[in-house]
Design a protein around this nucleic acid. Sequence first.
RNA 1: GGGGCGUUAGCUCAGAGGUAGAGCAUUCGGCUUUUAACCGACUGGUCGUAGGUUCGAUCCCUACACGCCCCA
Length: 508
Amino acid sequence: MRQASSRDCEVTDERDENKLIAERRRKLDELREIGNAYPNDVHRNALADELHRTFGEHEAEHLIEEDVEVDVTGRMMRKNVMGKGSFIALADRSGRIQVRLERDRLPEGVYAAFKKWDVGDILFAKGKLFKTQKGELTVLADEVRLVTKSLRPLPEKWHGLSDQEIRYRQRYVDLIMNEESRDVFRKRTAVVQYMRSFLDSQDFLEVETPMMQVTPGGAIARPFKTHHNALDMELYLRIAPELNLKRLVVGGFERVYEINRNFRNEGVSTQHNPEFTMMEAYRAYADYQDWMNSTEAMLRGMSSAVLGTTVVEYQGESYDFGKPFARMTVEEAILKYNEDIDSGKLRDRDYLVSVCERLEVPVLEGYGEGKLQIEIFEKTCEDKLREPTFITQYPTEVSPLSRQNDSDPFVTDRFELFISGREIANGFSELNDPEEQAARFRAQVANREAGDDEAMAFDHDYIRALEYGMPPTAGIGVGIDRVVMLFTDSPSIRDVLLFPHMRPEVFD
RNA sequence: GGGGCGUUAGCUCAGAGGUAGAGCAUUCGGCUUUUAACCGACUGGUCGUAGGUUCGAUCCCUACACGCCCCA
């Protein structure tokens, strides 16, 4: 963080702290002299939102007659002192409730003490509900307590906190100040909850598989490495749960899923965080077409459940998840977005190399026709896939765990879902022929030996599992963070991660 | 990894090669229906860090740190 801003972060010597904090620390010292400054005997019987829902529509006169006494608590977000009477706003997890404080209604000395309390302090208030002249539901306090002193001033009330760096590094301040931010994370939870209920209702079993693996597999990516001291061995953080989940299908759990973190040792960007959340699900006796249909149904239901509409507004564009998702093959997409490409030469290596050179896509020695196609696809098609679109028939060369297509072994029975130019999901009919899978692993190992450090390792136990027999199965992976970005109109993955990865802050 | 932009009071932001500005917050005073409360007074800064140019740098130059955006 900027050094001037960080200077006061860890210093306890009051002389070096800014005056605002020093002032509050003095007030805390006074609280300590009077009694316990951090009590733990506080309970409430009402939440702000619940009070507004229950009594918000009541007429002022009726409300007085009802004589409703409530105990509320929350962080003081607003403090308007007007002589012998004041209004404050308390924020609890549900929302805000206003409290009216009057000197002559409170026990002797309490009002004077209250005047020294600061915005940001956490309070308790007991009193009867009434409505102000402007009609705002308010607690008329007979009792008020400072429950937790806040030593650090909150950001300005009108503009709030907008500094991106502080919003990410000190998410607690962001959450205190920004309702929109709280809403993002509530929606994130709603997305995951919907996904769980969708799968649970179809008899999928949720499982947890290891984060630390001896052989990282299931995706083409660089892993993080760690070390187990007692066993004195290298371990890797998983890049995908895929192979373990399919082991479970071999074991007879015909429908399994996991929602959990993956770790990939790659760059950080608005689309990538080193750890991110993936949902992977596997279903026996299904194929990739079934998963396309399910994925579409899930996203449609999810948008209705989370947003209350099938129309998703994202960064100025609008996508209707209620409409059928488009479907096209990789080769169809390449031809659609490259009118100059010769449809008869899509599997001609020399031709594809020349196209890549023209597109200034670096070509490595070992690239075959399939890899070259994908390079061209990624360069020229992906960002044009705005409306929800399933791209199918990925080349076998780039799909080492997918089942080959029966009529065209150049491609696999695989799809990826794109929305707003981004990959959201990836699914395929699983390769369950152990001998074919072993051959694919050998090809990956050859790539690795040729210098591709993202290529897969040979997983002997996975082959052994397949040799016991895995029923015909199809699986899918959905990037949760990206779905949440879509559903919350967030331009950066950091906006949907409570604590996004940041370079370490300098405390001097 | 490359490029662009940014970093000034607790927060949100102005500013200009010549002693650093506003609003909110804080502090003090007034005010018993406010809600960006209001009125009055005061206070608050190593202008991200380190070098360089200059009589003089927060401003110009270089490097570095952190952040944002774009590209690979």
